[in-house]
């Protein structure tokens, strides 16, 4: 097992794959979070009934496999002649996927802010925006950050699926090496170790924050 044909160049190839994984994840999480905050506030402000269309559309992204979404997105961009690169398509779909989950997290965070606190803010003369900015945002962030970190980890792992569109990210890179070197177990273990190294520290941070910031203990 330690007698391997894997060279340093191959390790660099894997590192580039990991870079692609991180890049796709970063874009998706950034764009998804911005959209998620907007949609989450909208869902809260509009109430259950008026936000029903939005809820339904976002629910689709959570109830259809990501792989199918990616294939559909790619087919759609071809039909609509948008001429997107696989990277763009992957980022767009993953961002929407992230936004769908982030919306729920944001809404949950806003709902966790006691109405009395908000009414107190408004009666002190804060505008709706001021209330959102200075009262709701800090309190809601505290509640939703652990869940948001969990979502980021989920997107990091789910970003492996973009290999289906031909992007060479970490898993695809190791698959290419497996095909060439015929050492599946060893290379996949390295790939798994990289994923683990990327995700485990963030998972621990999330667990720590959850304990540290939990309002009731």
């Amino acid at each position: 097992m330690f007698d391997t044909a894997l060279s340093w160049n191959d390790m660099i190839f894997l590192a580039q794959g990991a870079g692609m994984t991180l890049m796709v994840t970063a874009v998706a999480v950034l764009a998804g979070t911005v959209m998620g905050i907007v949609f989450g506030v909208l869902r809260y402000q509009l109430g259950t009934w008026w936000s029903l269309p939005l809820t339904f559309v976002l629910d689709i992204f959570r109830s259809v496999p990501l792989l199918i979404q990616l294939v559909l997105g790619n087919a759609f961009q071809a039909i609509a002649r948008l001429g997107w690169e696989p990277f763009t398509t992957s980022c767009v779909i993953l961002s929407l996927y992230t936004a769908a989950y982030c919306t729920e997290i944001v809404r949950g965070g806003i709902e966790a802010v006691p109405p009395t606190t908000r009414r107190a803010a408004r009666s002190l003369g804060l505008t709706w925006w001021g209330d959102m900015r200075y009262i709701v945002a800090p309190l809601a962030t505290r509640v939703s950050l652990p869940a948001w970190i969990g979502l980021t980890l989920g997107v990091l792992k789910d970003s492996a699926l973009v290999l289906w569109l031909g992007l060479i990210e970490l898993l695809r890179a190791s698959q290419i090496l497996v095909t060439r070197l015929q050492e599946p177990l060893f290379i996949l273990m390295i790939c798994g170790a990289i994923y683990f190294l990327l995700s485990f520290p963030i998972a621990r941070l999330g667990g720590y924050l959850e304990k540290r910031w939990s309002p009731h203990d």
């Binding site: 497996v178 177990l185 994923y195």
Partner: peptide, 23 residues
């Protein structure tokens, strides 16, 4: 638990399909 939660599901399926071949 940590392995299952910190690696992609697709990786786990690959491991079962390609990785176990080594054994």
């Amino acid at each position: 638990v940590e392995l299952a939660r910190n690696t992609p599901a697709l990786f786990q399926i690959y491991m079962a399909h390609f990785g176990l071949g080594a054994f």
